[in-house]
Design a protein around this nucleic acid. Structure first.
Lengths: 213, 213, 213, 213
DNA sequence: GATGAATGAGTATTCATTCAT
DNA sequence: GATGAATGAATACTCATTCAT
């Protein structure tokens, strides 16, 4: 966690530092990300950084934390449905959330993505925990889906979880590339309108398969 | 491309350099990968490296190239079926190839994986080309599948391609983790036997969906 | 000298700062000793430190000063004998004082020791003065000893002073290590009982030599 | 140990680096000694230093090693007497060696002195070993002296060893200061002539005590 | 063709000190 | 009188690359 000093900073300065840090960690590995670059861009003294954060790792973990909170805030604004209403509608909603969240926070999402998919997991305990939580959630969803008769219980649940998790994670990126959308401060109605059918289609594939009936 | 001097090297020395380079780039980002480490482990002179390769990038691209050739050689040893025999059997075969190739070349696969999923694309033209080729191949497969009636033509082909490509790419890693297999020099019959049902199941999901009929 | 503000501080706070400073300077060279560490441990603001002391050197010199006063207070509590009663009994008493003082103030003694034996003398005039005072005192003792017939006047007085000063200084440390005593808040009777014969023996060596008569 | 690179250096350059390093470590604690200062004075690039030495510690230990070898070379040039000829003549010889060696290598001696008397012992295993060896040697001498009847066996041997070791170590410094001698490249006959009686006198004190017979 | 020494900018982090509030 | 944010130079150490031999 950042030191109190950091939270005492005038809001715009604090935000500037965060933004620049997100840029840096979105663009580089943890080891390659450079504190020097961040402070020089932020126009603050090298020493000042260490008044705000204990070290590089501290900043990095804070960004992950922040991403979590941002996402939670975002999700709660979207009235989450009950997964018991059916797994596939719920998945559709999750994909929408993921995809629109990524639109408004593409760099931040990238930081998280990098964290999850790097080998950092090995050296940063916080990350392995995050990974496990995510996995557990997907396994839970699948189990629920099977109990409700949404998912054929003949399938290996872990395998299904893998498929859902992988596709959900990657889909946001794909949709953004595909629609050639510029990252936006606020999610545009237009974007949601364009993205929705794509997401729906993927869910349909998952539900009924690619094969023509 | 490496300089001619590199190819004039005695085979074992050349191979040693390659292996160590693969280790290094499998474990680190491009910027974090260290030439110093490679040469010191290889026991060759710093200067010698630059007689073999123009620079770090040159080596990196060579590894990607090499990965491509290795995979091609590997694939040809496995009597590729004709995709026109049906998309889904073909996919099953592809997944088997990917998964077994990764078993015997986990480090090399990791290098490629890293390359494709980093932003290296932005600064390394060769990588974007590689990405495009892969995408194009999947699109081609899907198109074929639709023509043959394997895939419902109502789907967006690009979206289907995304799904196939994503799952195929990630599946190898997943299966290895899942089976808790140690990387092996040669693919064991046992591994193939254990992996096959998992891959089949994923293909089945793709074909018929998760929903119980 | 510390600024007046320091002496206005509530006693426990002032003492805490002093104790932590002693710890720091006992463990590190002057250049390596860290004000940052001291204030952070003391839980006071960085700026506050500079309200109490002009700078690092100021604090350091104050500790030396304080050590002098502490020792003086300590000595006076031990009813110093008159050196004119005989040099060697007096030496025995001095060694007892030195050794028991070190037991109850090991860190503070270490600070002084470090100061005297570093090259700080070169850049800190106060230290050379301290050194000279000590030397002068020993020379005075020796002179007295010769006048009283305790010490053979054939010896070079300065050389005798060196021998006495060196041994007295080092003996405290040696005895503590030797008895494997933990630093104690107050000098235990037990410790004095164990140390006394050792000190006596050294004095005996000084008086009569190592040679068997 | 320094890397081969270092030994391949042209003699004068290598010597210059060593000399500057000795200066630095003679004047500062291990933590305070600055590699930056050394390289900048030596006029070599920061990076070059690390072609010669693994790190700061490597350089430091090399200096200690070098001091050991220098001293050994020096001692062998002085035809060491047999301690069985009598402890006190032997001590006289040891003190002469120590004192004249210090004259021609005052900085190097200072490095060793610092090493032995710092708390570095705690973190540098090599130093504690050195310390133990020295102590053991003195204990051995005392034991011999007692067997030969040079030293009164009523004394505590460990305590005698402490006295001898302390005085021998400190005497070199004292004599140099006392004679106000400039450090010299080669030991002058004149210096030896002046120092000898002082050393003899100290040995006499040790043998017969300060008391007038 | 091989070598390995030299380089200087790069890294994260700590420091004593100042000064506006 | 207390605070604590700001600073910039300092630290040890690593890097990819060059070039003379």
């Amino acid at each position: 966690m950042p030191l109190q000093t950091f939270f005492n900073l005038p809001e715009p300065k604090r935000q500037a530092i965060i933004d620049l840090a997100i840029d840096e960690f979105a663009e580089h590995d943890f080891p390659s990300a450079s504190i020097s670059r961040i402070v020089s861009r932020a126009g603050i003294a090298k020493g000042s950084f260490y008044q705000y954060f204990a070290d590089k790792k501290d900043l990095f973990l804070y960004l992950l934390d922040l991403a979590g909170h941002e996402k939670m805030r975002f999700v709660q604004g979207l009235q989450p449905p009950d997964p018991r209403m059916g797994l596939f509608p719920y998945l559709r909603w999750m994909m929408e959330v993921g995809s629109t969240f990524r639109l408004s926070n593409p760099k931040l999402e990238q930081v998280v993505y990098r964290a999850l998919y790097s080998d950092s997991g090995t050296w940063l305990e916080a990350i392995s925990r995050l990974r496990e939580q995510t996995d557990a959630y997907y396994r839970h969803l699948v189990q629920l889906g099977m109990q409700q008769g949404d998912v054929d219980p003949a399938y290996d649940p872990e395998l299904v979880a893998f498929v859902l998790s992988t596709l959900t994670t990657e889909l946001g990126k794909h949709v953004m590339t595909r629609l050639q959308v510029e990252p936006a401060q606020s999610v545009t109605r237009e974007y949601v309108a364009k993205a929705a059918p794509l997401l729906s289609e993927v869910v349909h594939m998952l539900e009924h398969g690619l094969h023509r009936k």
